Simulated scan of single mutants.
Amino acid sequence: MTAVPAAEFGSARAPDRSRHPLRRTARTGRSAVRIVATSITVFLLASFLTYGLGAVGHANPAAAVLGDIATPADITRMNHVFGLDRPLLVQYFSWLGHALTGDLGTSYFTSVPVSQSVGQALPVDLSIAVLALTFAVVLGGAAGIAAALRQGGKLDRAVTLVCAGLATVPPFVIGIALIVVFSVFLKVLPSGGYVPLGTDAGQWLRFALLPALALSVEGAAAIARQLRTSLVAAVKENYVTGAVARGLPARRVLFGHVLRNAAGPALTVVGLEIPNLIGGAVVAEKIFNLPGVAQLALQSGSQHDIPLIQGTLLVTIGVVLVSNIAVNLVLLRLTPQARRPAGAAV
């Protein structure tokens, strides 16, 4: 195998011409405010679309609740009880105001508070998603670093080929393959079901391993490919020579400076993978029989339970946006160039 000389990883952090601490802090603060403000705007637009699509749909919740024997007068009276006879904007702002306080309404069919139903299902998805994201970052990061260290060698080509192949395989195919291998043949892990983390951490891990692995493969492949590309480009920068001349240890430079500069694109991939994990949860919950938010949303959709549909979508949007805010703030902290406004000199 042809290894990249260790000296090439003697890179220092890319120079930041605005070294005054107060100036850097102010710039970071402005960037963080922009990130949060943008996310709030997206949340408001998404919440309005979520509520609007439910409100203008062809389904008539009052008629569905009352059944075939309902008269037009009964339906009108029930629409008034549900508040569906008010203007759309009035309904939306009333719903959003209550939602921001934790009140997502009540199911039309079960009379159970939506927040209670979502609160029981959401931890399933969050625990699986966090485990899947951990697998993706650890496996993808290790593979990307290993490939960059052996640029052009057999390991580099193997990682690139495997990642390219895995990126094209849907999560449900990987999930079925994992069930066949670990549940049917090896009989070491259950094929489905769920135990809450707070009830038994060991059993939770046994049930969560396969769905988390199935969801993590695509993200791990994307992270590995992006990180490998970024690292290979980073070691060719001019400031690498300067770091080598100063005699910085290769390991310290790799993990303390080069990796920090090259992590930006990989972190962006992490942010993009979060919605994919949420979307993949629909299939994963079905394959592995998980009582998560996706199954709750599918069930509510089949019943035209508008408050439950809107509540699950709103919570999902909130989780995705909060996760992306966190990723962007980490990116802002790790990469100085992300603090610079567009068009600024570097």
Rank of each mutant, 00 (worst) to 15 (best):
L205P: 06
L133Y: 00
K187L: 05
N289R: 12
V42I: 02
P211K: 11
Q120W: 11
A212D: 06
F288E: 06
G198Y: 14
Q91H: 05
P249K: 01
N289D: 15
D200Y: 10
N261G: 15
P113T: 06
L209I: 11
V258G: 15
W95Q: 09
G247N: 05
T41Y: 03
A142H: 00
G10D: 11
V240Q: 15
L296Q: 10
A284H: 03
V282S: 08
V253D: 14
M1R: 14
C163V: 08
A99I: 11
Q310C: 07
A294D: 12
I128Q: 05
A221Y: 09
A14R: 12
S216M: 02
L254Q: 10
G57K: 02
H257E: 12
L53M: 12
N60Y: 09
V327Y: 00
V253N: 14
L329G: 00
Q151V: 13
Q91W: 03
L149V: 13
Q310T: 04
L259N: 07
G29T: 00
H58T: 09
A46D: 09
A212S: 08
N276L: 12
I287Y: 02
Y239Q: 12
Q337R: 12
D156T: 13
E273H: 14
T106Y: 05
P123T: 06
R24M: 01
A148R: 03
A262F: 07
